[in-house]
Design a protein around this nucleic acid. Structure first.
Lengths: 344, 344
DNA sequence: ATGAAAGCGCTAACAC
DNA sequence: GTGTTAGCGCTTTCAT
C-alpha cells in the first residue's frame, strides 16, 4: 500500500504538502494541488486510518453491543439497520459485538472496547441489573442505551413511548367493549415492560374497569411462552375476551394456543401485540399491534451518540419515540364465549 | 489513557520490558513480570490497537458487507450472528456495512475498507453482476462470499447444498404421489437459485415425471410475490397439487393465496419452502421446508476467512453446507382438487 | 505556499 | 534479562 511519502515523491512535493491537500487546507497552490491529486489517483492512495487515529487519538469506531438475542430478535434488527446506516453517514464505523446470555464471558468485549479506543457505544437489549452495566458506565465511553432507562453524564437513552403504546392498545380493546382483558407481559426487570404494564393499567382506570390480577401473566419472550401463558390464563379465568401481549412474538404464541383450543380470533378472543414486526401483517388474522419504529430508533441513537462525540459538553435527555396503534384484524367487539368454553 | 510509558515508569522498568510482558515473551524475570503486571492493573492499561496495528500493518478488522436486505432477511441474520461470534473468538472485529440496493452509492464503503486496512471481507447477498464485485476482487483483500459462487486467488465462497436441498424437497413431493409440482423460484441471476431449479429437475427425472414449463414461475423475494405467483400459477394450470417455493417467505405468500382461494394445505395443495427460518415451524400448518444452517455458514465463513489471513498461501475450495429436509405438516399425499377448483 | 522535523504509542532489532 | 533506539504513516507546529 502506498504511503504519503510515495505520493509526495511522485508529485515532487513534501509529505506535509500532501497532508494539507488531503485535509483540504486552503493554503495550497491550485497547480500543486492538482499534481498531488493526480499522484493520489495514480497510486490509488488511501490514508491509513490507524496512523491518523493514533495521532488524533480518535478511532472513528463505534461499538454496537447486542445483548441476549440481539440480532435474532425481530425488533432489534430494525434498530441495528437504522444504526449502521446512520453511523456510516456520519463517517464512522460500527463494530458489532454480541453477548449472547448472562453467563457469557463478556470480558473480551470490554478489553477490545478499550484496545480499539471505541469512541462511543450503542447498547441494545442490556437486561436490567446485568453486570455489564457497571463496566460500561465505568469506561467513561459515551454510550447510548436503546430500550433501557439510564441516566448519567455522557450517557443517553432511547426507547419507545411504551406507556402510550400499551395505553392505546388497551384503550382500543376497552372501546370494543372488552372488560376482561388479559396482559401477557415479558417477565424482565426492564423498565419498558413496567411502562407497558402501567399503560395497560391507565387505560383500565380511564374506563373505570377494575384491574384483575388473575389476568396478568409474566412470562419469557419466546413464542412458546406466549402459548403456555394463554393456556394458564384460561385455567385461571375462562371468561377472558381479549389478550394483550407485550410483544408480537408472544401474541403469536397466544394465537397458537387459541387455535389449538378451537377459539376464533377475533370472534371469540381479541389479540393485540407490540412491536409490529414484519410478520404482524401477514399473520392469520393480521395482528393488531403497537408499532415501534425500530429504524428510527436506531437512527436517532446513532445521531445522538455522534452529537455527543462531536460536542464534549453534550449529554442528551432521554429520548422517547412515538408509538402507534396499528388496528388490523385480530381485534373485534366483545362477544360472549362462555358457552363455547364451558362446552369445550 | 495510560500508555506503555506510564506503565514502565510506574513499574520502574523500560518500555520494551513492558512490551515483552504484554506480548508474552518468556525472557522476563518473574519478579519483573509481576511488577509490570501490577502496574498494568493499577493503571487499567489497555494497549492501543492503532499503534500496534500501525507497526504490524494489521488492523484486526474484518468487514462484513451486507447487500440488499441484508440483516432484514430472515435467513441472513443467522449468518451474521454466526460470523460475528466466530470472528470474535478469533480475536478480530467485525465492521458492519450495508449496501441497501443496487443504485446505492457504495463508494464510501470501499473507501473505508481501504482506509481502515480491513484484513478480510465477508460478503452477503451480493447480486450476480453487481458492480461491487469487481471492486472487491480488485481490492486484493481476502474475501469470503456467502451464497455466491466466485473463484479466484484468496477468494472463498460458501453456500448451502442447494441442489440437494431442492432435490430432496421435490423428491418428497413426488414420493407422496404428486406429479404436477410447481416451482416458484426467486428471479435472480444468482447461481443458488439455478441450483435449486436443477435439483427440482433432477428429482423429476429420477421419477420419470416430465417437467412442465408452465409450472415454473420466477418472481421476487417478498411474500406478496409468492402470493401473486400462486395466483398466476392457478391461472396457468388449475391442476397443480404441490408447490415448491425457493424460500420460506415465498412459501408463506403462496399459502396466503391458497387460503384466500379457500384451498386447504396440505389436503388440497402441498407446499414446501426453503431456508427453515424461525417462523417455519410456527406457520399454520407448520411448513415443510429445506433447512439451511445459517449459523454454521456464518461460522465457517469466518473460520475460513481467518484461515486465509493466517496463511498467506491458503485459498479455500468452495464450501458446500449440508441441507436437510424438515418434513412438517404442509405436505401430504396427493388428492384430486379438480372438483373443488372447477366449481370455484 | 511549501518544507523540515517532532512525535502519537507501540514493536522489534540490537546492545549490553 | 533488560534497556536503547529506529521507525510504522501520519498530523502539526514552526521555519522559510
Amino acid at each position: 500500500m502506498p504511503t504519503l511519502r510515495d505520493v509526495a515523491r511522485l508529485a515532487g512535493v513534501s509529505i506535509s504538502t500532501v497532508s494539507h491537500v488531503l485535509n483540504k487546507y486552503d493554503d495550497i497552490n491550485e497547480e500543486t494541488r492538482q499534481k498531488v491529486l493526480a499522484a493520489i489517483k495514480k497510486l490509488d492512495y488511501h490514508a491509513n486510518s490507524m496512523a491518523r487515529g493514533l495521532i488524533k487519538n480518535k478511532s472513528s469506531l463505534i461499538g454496537l453491543i447486542l445483548f441476549g438475542e440481539g440480532i435474532g430478535h425481530p425488533f432489534f434488527h430494525q434498530v441495528v439497520r437504522g444504526t449502521i446506516d446512520e453511523v456510516e453517514k456520519r463517517d464512522r464505523n460500527a463494530i458489532l459485538s454480541t453477548v449472547p446470555h448472562d453467563g457469557y464471558e463478556a470480558a473480551p468485549i470490554f478489553r477490545k472496547m478499550h484496545e480499539h479506543r471505541l469512541e462511543g457505544l450503542i447498547v441494545l437489549g442490556l437486561p436490567e441489573g446485568h453486570a455489564a452495566m457497571a463496566r460500561i458506565l465505568n469506561s467513561k465511553i459515551p454510550t447510548l442505551f436503546v430500550d433501557a432507562v439510564v441516566e448519567g453524564e455522557r450517557i443517553g437513552s432511547i426507547r419507545s413511548d411504551n406507556f402510550r403504546g400499551a395505553f392505546l392498545a388497551t384503550d382500543h380493546l376497552l372501546q370494543l367493549g372488552h372488560t376482561r382483558i388479559a396482559f401477557v407481559n415479558e417477565a424482565s426487570e426492564a423498565a419498558i415492560f413496567e411502562e407497558r404494564f402501567r399503560g395497560y393499567l391507565a387505560a383500565h382506570e380511564k374506563w373505570g374497569v377494575e384491574f384483575n390480577p388473575a389476568l396478568y401473566i409474566k412470562t419469557g419472550n419466546y413464542r412458546v411462552e406466549g402459548y403456555r401463558a394463554a393456556r394458564e390464563l384460561f385455567e385461571r379465568d375462562r371468561q377472558v375476551t381479549a389478550i394483550f401481549a407485550s410483544s408480537d412474538r408472544l401474541a403469536f404464541g397466544v394465537m397458537d394456543e387459541l387455535r389449538r383450543a378451537g377459539l376464533q380470533v377475533p370472534q371469540d378472543v381479541s389479540v393485540v401485540g407490540f412491536d409490529d414486526i414484519e410478520l404482524a401483517c401477514f399473520a392469520n388474522p393480521p395482528l393488531t399491534t403497537v408499532r415501534q419504529n425500530g429504524n428510527l430508533m436506531g437512527e436517532r441513537a446513532a445521531k445522538e451518540l455522534v452529537a455527543m462525540l462531536e460536542d464534549p459538553e453534550y449529554t442528551p435527555a432521554p429520548i422517547l419515540i412515538d408509538t402507534e396503534l396499528m388496528v388490523r384484524e385480530s381485534t373485534g367487539p366483545v362477544r360472549g364465549i362462555n358457552a363455547r368454553l364451558s362446552s369445550a
